[in-house]
Design a protein around this nucleic acid. Structure first.
Lengths: 344, 344
DNA sequence: CTGAAAGCGCTAACAG
DNA sequence: CTGTTAGCGCTTTCAG
């Protein structure tokens, strides 16, 4: 044993429950009770404890509590990345229910993590529930996590965990159908990486469904680009060089915006020379010009439902939230009433 | 089997170090050593422990470890919100150094949290270091946190904690100066909420510095809008109704993009009728048309430096990262072949 | 009404 | 080379 017999209260560090107890001359149990507003503690002692707590600036260690409670009061969210309005909206939705229940949120972006699985496992340990976005980690890993704790998949599916999603396939088909039937387009291309996530896969599938139903062949291989604005600008260049189809069906709004903003500079008018559609209906979609025809998704609701499920609410194996086709002008439809028409 | 007296190995739960120890017939210390690759453990026992670990699917509880180590191996980041490219870039920068050092990241968006301070305190407890963005919590709270642990402020300043930032004031002044001197604009408005964050305050201050230096009066009160695209669209309407100044100096790129995209629909050409500038140089700035004149900020670097500091690297009290004026076409300059870098 | 003590999962001296 | 044991900070029976 060391000379100084002061095993507790390491100088620079935060005070612990024992520091308070010693200070006041009570037991740690009493201090604990005070921090919990336990009615069993006397007005007098209670006051003294409170005073010491304030004076020393004590706050219970949530780590210690978590270990004791066997509950962390934290919700984990696993996403591919944190960029872009889609994930921001998803997080906000989840956060709204987390706030309501006094739970903290911990988000993990797997894209930047070389060992995503290990990171997710670690996250799982530090949280009471997990929301996992489709396409972030292998399904086998999801099953493993689901066996150990509460997991819900969002925008994807899993054999072992409940899922919250939209019917992106039908929505994409409906959108594509509109392009074909209403506008008579025959040569359509899909823009986006179909294998990027379950969501984009479904959108591509829906796109092909509609073509098939119309007896059309795919006008070309999908243009495999990331789902961000910058990739859209790149895609625009490729499209410009290879010659334009009748319509470009983009995997999401940001990609579409990139095309929309770049193509005019290359001499192509939208929608006269080529129709463009998006997916998600982010706020950018309404601000772009021409305004973007797209599919509205209740992204925040996806997050909220998933959060509720991950936090213990009962959830169907599959919760499918509705989407809505939003027709604006980028597909070639006329501007609807109430909006300035500055076509051409 | 459902004997009440089975304190260990609660059925549904994850196995603990004791479960493994009992399974193999060794002590927990041995198991701990194996999980740490301690060379002191024999090839034979080691194998059996490993086997049991795999078979039972044991992973050490990071909570338990954190308590014992007195270190969480986690970095906390406090931001106003998680939306928008600025914060995404900041996080990516921080994440890059976190990944490098095998540390997890935990981000907190205060905007959606009614009690931001309490949330931050809780986060502080669960992390080894904290990055706090300017304008998220009161300075007094930052001091309090800094006294207890490692804190660095990013895009802001504090008396007690080191800061990583850019000289937004000078940059904004330089930008405004360009508008005044090169383009001869006299009536300039600032768009954005000056009191929104230290960063925007500084930009507004710089804007006024330039006006004053040129002997100009402010052409109007700042247009107090949020820093997102949608707010830009709103601002466009207001500007349209009140009549246009010569130039609009926006607090960030997103706001500028909102204006840029909306004003043409209201019959105003950019930059002929009104010049517009942004701030940050996000990827949208280059894609917009006309392309946005703005100030480049090394946002990811801000995040990276802050992370290094929060993780223990020595940091100056103030680390100022350089900005760069990026002249494109939205200010009225002619399109150039390459990208302009500096002025003067 | 209060205190002692066991326990949450893990690590790290300190013996053997 | 391996086991015992005392913590890390907190909660919570169970006695008093």
């Amino acid at each position: 044993m060391t000379d100084a017999r002061a095993p507790r209260s390491r100088t620079g560090s935060r005070p612990t429950i024992r520091d308070i107890a010693r200070e006041v001359g009570v037991s740690v149990a009493t201090v604990s009770r005070v921090t919990h507003d336990d009615p069993r503690v006397t007005g007098e002692t209670k006051e003294r404890v409170r005073e010491a707590i304030d004076r020393l600036g004590y706050t219970p260690s949530s780590l210690g509590r978590a270990l004791s409670y066997q509950r962390t009061n934290t919700l984990g969210i696993v996403l591919p990345g944190l960029g872009g309005p889609y994930f921001a909206a998803l997080i906000e939705g989840a956060e709204s229910v987390a706030v309501e229940r006094g739970v903290a949120i911990n988000v993990l972006g797997t894209h930047l993590r070389p060992d995503a699985v290990a990171s997710v496992r670690q996250l799982a340990e530090r949280t009471d529930g997990l929301i996992v976005a489709g396409g972030t980690i292998p399904d086998a890993e999801i099953s493993r996590l689901a066996a150990a704790g509460r997991v819900v998949v969002v925008a994807g599916e899993s054999a072992e965990a409940p899922a919250v999603l939209t019917d992106g396939r039908s929505a994409a088909a409906e959108l594509t159908h509109h392009l074909i039937e209403t506008h008579g387009h025959r040569r359509l291309w899909f823009v986006g990486e179909p294998d990027g996530s379950p969501d984009t896969t479904l959108r591509y599938d829906g796109f092909r469904d509609a073509l098939r139903d119309a007896g059309l062949d795919e006008a070309g291989a999908p243009l495999r680009y990331g789902l961000d604005v910058r990739s859209g600008a790149l895609a625009a260049r490729q499209v410009h060089e290879s010659g334009l189809p009748d319509a470009l069906v983009c995997a999401n709004d940001e990609l579409a915006i990139g095309l929309l903003a770049t193509l005019p500079g290359l001499g192509h008018r939208i929608p006269q020379d080529v129709a463009i559609t998006g997916f998600d209906d982010q706020s950018l979609a309404e601000i772009a010009s021409p305004r973007l025809t797209t599919v509205h998704q209740p992204v925040a609701d996806l997050g909220a439902h998933a959060a509720a499920g991950a936090l213990g609410d009962d959830l169907e194996p599959r919760t499918v939230l509705p989407t809505r086709l939003v027709i604006r002008e980028s597909c070639g439809c006329a501007a609807s009433a109430g909006v300035d028409t500055t076509t051409d």
